[in-house]
Design a protein around this nucleic acid. Structure first.
Lengths: 335, 335
DNA sequence: GTGAAAGCGCTAACAC
DNA sequence: GTGTTAGCGCTTTCAC
């Protein structure tokens, strides 16, 4: 099944390849008649441009690398959908890698992507700081890097797509307070994740404002899995910390926590209300449905793709930060 | 940040590009000394092969298209992980598309993939039959097509990776029977999905064998979402069909069903046991954890990639069916 | 053991 | 308005 090339069309129509090319590209310097003949023949013979040849010509690989911490929750999938929506129509392909919340794997992934000659990398960090050297090196080499959700520390000037972690956390905690909860525990995730610290800050600020802050209510976890969420609650109980609600760093941690509560016959939200930050479909899949700060994941993906395209078009484009609005969605777990 | 090419090395070492190329490829016809010089220089200058050029030369796009019905559950993500494990080391990139359980979108996706000049397509169907013409056409054009999980009807001879839907369903239903359940409802999913019919067959066979088959216990759904699972149970209740357990076509339908039960204060598994078929992480995320037929998703992805590589290497390779073992995992929802 | 040259499919100066 | 030519980065005959 040999593919039809411009050469084939050229022979078929007894025209030079350049004329064919021009006709196909809607170049003005082509007789209307000729263009029509070319287009018809292309259609008839089933001509399709060879993207590889185009890429070689343009010096691009038309491949974007993606690094995400995990793909178990629909978080990354949703963002990817946005990225794909933006990039597929432009002929970009993807190499999607997962770091499994492990900086070492993240490093390997980035190196893999370099081997792929990617035109750029869109990344959601697993932990801050560990690989800052590599991020910088990649950018220095001229490969655009765009961050979303979990971003590196302020020491690195980068393009990024985020929501305001601190403010949205404050809003969610304030909502819990307004519903009458006073002992709000916070499962904050690993302290090496920048957003975890930000969200904890938002939590602290509002708890302090209402004069109900208690250091003991905060518990950080080693990792981001459901198991870590469970453990966190278990620890709170073991330490005999009293709490009437939980605000968790992520859907995953929250659901882990919920499961532990349910296993121990603690009613949600009767005994303990639960709220989280993420906004994945998981929050409406579990029972009771989970109140959560909903991030506009698909739009975030589209925005990240947009920043990437900017950088690809003009490598000297300034780094930009896109701050997206999140939405508090109230569900059964707090009502 | 100009990339180093073979030409650069050639100038740098005053050697012809062909010698550089040979040295890099470990061709025997190169002086050992020369090879070492080349390798050193390549390392020093940071040479990396241009994959696009390689691809143009070899006539491949080194891109594999993927079509999956959805990415909300971790099902596809797991399979993808297997595919990626197998294909990334070989330099393949992916274009992953979602059909949203919609044959029309599936069609568009396939056409998009053709435009990408993919070397092959790995696909998990949304509904059988609708696009058989297109599958055939794609294969006729010489683009290898490998199916997994949801496959087309027998009329199409294709390479595929599956588990035995019928037998595993029988086993799961028999397990429910052995735990004392007699009124086992089956939420079977849309009848246009081949696997749904297969799994229903497995269900029927074993129910009949034990003389407890009742047509009323089977309910098919319009779609595959959580909502459809809910609706199914609701209908069973409305029809006043008595049941002490549910066997669902997928985790998603099962979880939707579970949520409806819980919302109506029906105890799981006390009043109604629930089991499903899929084997995604979702089954251990929900509460109570869900008994399920666990498919070896990652391995299935690897197998599919393997079949694809076979076809790419030798387009006349015969179609093969890889039948994988599934595992029944018993969790709280049936204990 | 090494070099020169052609060619993968396409576009874009540069002619005419 | 159309054709000729060179070249993107690489491999691979074909010479020597």
């Amino acid at each position: 099944m040999k593919r039809i090339t411009i050469k084939d069309l050229s022979k078929f129509l007894s025209l030079s390849t350049s004329t064919i090319s021009r006709a196909l590209l809607n170049d003005k310097n082509v007789n209307l008649e000729t263009r029509k003949r070319v287009l018809d023949a292309a259609d008839q013979l089933g001509y399709k441009p060879n993207l590889t040849a185009l890429n070689l010509k343009s010096g691009q690989s038309k491949t974007i690398g993606i690094v995400v911490p995990e793909m178990i929750t629909p978080f990354s999938a949703k963002v990817l959908e946005g990225i794909q929506n933006a990039l597929y129509p432009l002929g970009y392909r993807l190499v999607i890698t997962q770091s499994d919340e492990n900086p070492v794997i993240e490093r390997k992934n980035l190196q893999l992507l370099e081997d792929f000659n990617v035109d750029g990398i869109i990344i959601n960090l697993c932990h801050e700081t560990y690989n800052n050297d590599l991020y910088q090196q990649i950018m220095d080499q001229g490969t655009p890097l765009v961050f979303f959700d979990r971003i590196p520390g302020k020491s690195l000037d980068v393009s990024k797509v985020i929501v305001d972690d601190s403010i949205n956390s404050s809003l969610m905690v304030e909502y819990l307070i307004k519903t009458g909860r006073k002992r709000i525990a916070h499962i904050m995730g690993p302290q090496t994740i920048r957003n975890a610290v930000e969200r904890a800050n938002g939590y602290k600020r509002i708890m302090t404002k209402y004069n109900i802050f208690d250091e003991n209510l905060i518990i950080s976890t080693e990792g981001m899995s459901f198991g870590h969420g469970k453990e966190a609650v278990q620890q709170l109980l073991e330490r005999e910390v009293k709490f009437d609600s939980i605000f968790a760093f992520s859907d995953t941690l929250a659901i882990g926590a919920m499961n532990f509560l349910l296993e121990n016959n603690i009613k949600i939200p009767g005994d303990v209300a639960v709220a989280s930050f993420s906004g994945t479909e998981l929050s409406s899949i579990v029972y009771p449905q989970l109140t959560s700060v909903q991030q506009p994941l698909k739009s975030m993906g589209e925005a990240a793709a947009g920043l990437m395209l900017e950088k690809i078009k003009d490598s000297s484009a300034p780094n930009r930060t896109v701050l997206m609005d999140a939405e508090l969605v109230y569900r059964a777990s707090t009502l």
